[in-house]
Simulated assay, not measured.
Amino acid sequence: MYEVGGTALPTAEDPRRGRGSFGDAVAAASATGAVMLGVFNVYRDLAVASFRRSAALDAETACFGHGGRVTADASRALRESADACAPTR
């Protein structure tokens, strides 16, 4: 699925395997592994809303276009980061 507010890169979920692939919509910091909103977004408010929708997916593992991957309890890491993201308004 395309995440509004981000670049035209796909987001996909494989619920049978508990995996989410988030393209550039979400990233993981290389040094710490912290999950964060991707930096390649056009409209921040829409990107944050898309991030929150993506964080609602059930995923044990999450892969990103940039940074490492989260290999355990990815849903928790995604939700915590999405909840901390403030829109620009």
Rank of each mutant, 00 (worst) to 15 (best):
G67R: 05
L37I: 09
P87H: 09
A56S: 14
A34K: 12
G68D: 09
V35M: 03
M1G: 07
D45F: 04
V26E: 03
A25N: 01
L57P: 00
V48Q: 01
A28H: 02
A84S: 11
A29H: 10
A59H: 06
G67I: 05
A25E: 00
A28G: 05
D83S: 14
S50Y: 07
L78Q: 07
A49T: 15
F51R: 06
R89D: 15
P10N: 10
S21L: 08
A77D: 12
L78C: 04
V39L: 08
R17W: 09
A25Y: 00
P87Y: 03
A59L: 08
A59G: 06
G33P: 02
F22G: 04
V70Q: 01
A34Y: 00
G65T: 13
Y2A: 11
G68T: 11
V35S: 02
M36L: 11
T88D: 13
V48M: 02
A27F: 00
D73N: 15
G65N: 08
R89P: 13
R16L: 15
D14K: 06
A34G: 08
A55C: 07
V26D: 03
D73A: 15
G23C: 03
A28C: 12
R17I: 03
E3F: 13
A84V: 04
G38E: 02
T71S: 11
R53M: 12
T7R: 13
R79Y: 02
D24E: 11
A12E: 11
V70N: 00
S54Y: 09
T11I: 13
A34F: 01
G5D: 03
L9W: 11
G23N: 01
A56R: 08
T32L: 08
A31L: 13
P87G: 10
D14I: 05
A29Q: 08
F51G: 01
G38I: 00
F51E: 04
A59T: 11
A29C: 12
R16D: 15
R17L: 14
F22P: 03
F51K: 03
A31I: 08
G68S: 12
S75M: 04
R16F: 11
R19H: 10
N41L: 01
S50G: 15
L9E: 15
A72N: 09
G23M: 04
D73Y: 07
T32H: 09
T61G: 03
T61I: 14
F22K: 02
Y2S: 09
A27V: 06
V26C: 11
L78F: 05
R17N: 15
D58H: 09
A74D: 04
R89C: 10
F51T: 04
A74Q: 02
G65R: 05
V35K: 00
A82W: 06
A47Y: 01
R16T: 14
E60G: 06
C63L: 12
F22E: 02
L37Q: 02
R89V: 15
T11G: 12
M1V: 10
A28N: 02
G23S: 06
L78D: 02
G67N: 10
F40N: 15
V48D: 01
R17Q: 14
G6M: 01
S21N: 08
H66K: 15
P15N: 08
A62C: 12
S81E: 07
G20N: 04
G20I: 12
R44K: 15
A31Q: 11
G6Y: 01
M36N: 06
A62N: 03
S81V: 07
G68Y: 02
